[in-house]
Simulated scan of single mutants.
Amino acid sequence: MSPAFQRQPLVLASASAARRALMAGVGLSVELQPADLDEEGLRQANPDLKPADMAVCLAETKAVAVSRMRPGVLVLGGDQILEDDGAIVSKAETLADVAARLRGFRGRTHHLHSGAALARDGAVVWRHVDTAALTVRDFSEAWLAAYLEAEGAALTGVVGGYRLEGPGAQLFSRIDGDYFTILGLPLWAVLEALRDQGVIDR
């Protein structure tokens, strides 16, 4: 661990480059160990969970699964759910699907729920969810075509078909909520929890 203020190791139960970059950006060293999780199966097994609760459920499940393999080590799990009119939206499979989805978002507001959980030795020690509301502007078809060409197939790897840290920021006319929540972690709450757990200094 290189940061002088980090007192304990931390494992990130995720393959997300965005979440790893967030942690590195605030000076934390994390080890990536993605959880082997059937997310779609978990969603289907819990059809009554609200989208925000599902985000936390997925984060907890990831953190617990990895923490059972890493005795004594604190594990951070994170997950994000996109909600549109009460329904959970999954990643698009093709660029054509991305285009159709973005057209459906045009001129409307949808929500991103970012869940996070900390687990140690198979037990959850902390959980949190934060929500951001994103209003998509009435963009033109010419803009959409240029956007799809610029970003390419990478858009199928991100829920919603946009990266706020990239050209996708141009999609929006208004955002209510925390920037880090949109990127994939409710960072302020995570940092406070890590202080409570003794991972970083107060």
Rank of each mutant, 00 (worst) to 15 (best):
P34A: 13
L37V: 12
D38P: 11
E39F: 02
E40Q: 14
E40L: 12
A45Y: 03
N46C: 00
P47I: 07
P51T: 12
P51M: 12
P51F: 13
A52K: 03
D53I: 10
D53K: 11
M54I: 12
C57L: 15
E60P: 07
K62H: 10
K62C: 12
A63I: 02
V64M: 05
V66T: 06
S67P: 13
R70P: 09
P71N: 00
G72T: 13
V73A: 06
L74M: 14
G78N: 00
G78A: 15
Q80W: 07
I81H: 08
L82A: 10
E83R: 01
E83L: 12
D85G: 12
G86I: 09
V89S: 03
S90V: 08
K91C: 05
K91A: 08
L95C: 07
L95I: 11
A96F: 09
D97S: 13
D97Y: 11
V98R: 10
V98Q: 12
L102S: 01
G104K: 05
R106S: 02
G107L: 02
H113R: 02
S114I: 06
G115I: 07
A116K: 08
A116N: 09
A116W: 05
A119Y: 08
A119N: 09
R127S: 10
V129S: 14
D130H: 14
T131L: 10
L134P: 05
R137Y: 02
D138G: 06
A142G: 00
L144P: 08
L148P: 03
A150V: 00
E151G: 04
E151K: 10
A153W: 09
A154P: 00
R163W: 00
L164K: 02
L164R: 04
L164C: 11
E165K: 00
Q170R: 15
Q170C: 09
F172T: 01
S173F: 01
S173Y: 08
S173Q: 15
R174C: 05
R174D: 14
I175F: 10
